[in-house]
Design a binder for these strands. Structure first.
Lengths: 160, 160
DNA sequence: CGGGCGTTGTTGAACCCTCAACCAGGATGC
DNA sequence: GCATCCTGGTTGAGGGTTCAACAACGCCCG
């Protein structure tokens, strides 16, 4: 068992602190100014970028890194608000297709500027161009590492 | 209103994806292997590092970047499990002091290796020494930016 | 065809977090 | 001393997420 060195600990804690405070800030900003959590905003964004502003639930779940269950609950709520509508899928009768309504799109348009400002202010404005480059590489490396992990997890499930 | 460029979008989404998957992985690992969320683990860690393994609630909240409310709920639960004990503070009768019990310490010791392994595997093992250096700088810069933000927020509250 | 098997999506319970309200105790100013 | 304000901590309600279970459907192979 290899523990973390003092240096590693410092990097680790600094990273977690920064990330936690950052995401909490974004979440609070979104909740305060637009009355929804970040997760819901991401759903609206994903839908707005899809052709016809509609996506199957499973696609949508992939695009916003959400579990199916979470998405189901979230879309149910968004539907109650009238921001999203669900309809059956023609080609696959299990399927459900979520579609962004005009009202939902308007909400998204209203929420976007504040969100982008917050991101710019606390990410892009505090980092140099070089640091941004590093951040891109770092994110990529972490994601690769996690994907192999997911593959491992699936393999394990397959083993039992 | 300045939007994000295509490059900025890529960095931004890549970063959020990596961070989200990473923290979700850590959370799931902790919940699965030790039956508690990461937030609770952090409380145990903070207490274990304090003199006499005890801290006032407000200190503890600072050390693990938690709101007082959240901490209060969490410690209540940890106390029910018998991992933490609360007692009154002598010098300030409002105060409450949380102390890690031996059982709580044992739980922490049992949980730590799996957690450290997960962190090593998905953070330190996938990054070069140079990238770690960058990450330290980046985290520092972000945290500084967020601290000025908190100060701004407080100033605004003061203004109104 | 028909019985497994994997996939899609939903649901309800349990759990955690957030927010606002609140109480109790210190600190300050008159 | 006392009114006022601030701080430390708790509580309850409301809402979001997770997990396990489930229903319905597609797929495939004998």
């Amino acid at each position: 068992m290899r523990w973390l060195s003092a240096d590693e600990q410092r990097v680790w804690r600094g990273f977690m602190t920064a990330v936690t405070k950052f995401t909490e800030h974004l979440d609070r900003q979104m909740q305060r100014d637009s009355g929804m959590p970040m997760a819901y905003y991401e759903i609206l964004v994903a839908l707005s970028e899809a052709p016809d502003r509609a996506l199957r639930m499973s696609e949508l779940a992939l695009n916003c890194h959400s579990s199916r269950s979470r998405l189901s609950h979230a879309v149910a709520k968004l539907e109650k608000e009238g921001w999203v509508q669900r309809r059956a899928c023609d080609s696959d009768r299990r399927g459900s297709i979520a579609r962004l309504t005009d009202r939902g799109f308007a909400v998204l348009e209203a929420a976007a500027p504040g969100h982008v400002t917050a991101v710019r202010e606390h990410l892009f404005d505090v980092l140099t161009a070089e640091q941004l480059g590093s951040l891109r590489e770092i994110s990529q490396a972490m994601e690769n590492g996690l994907q192999t992990e997911c593959a491992k997890a699936r393999a394990e499930i397959g083993e039992f």
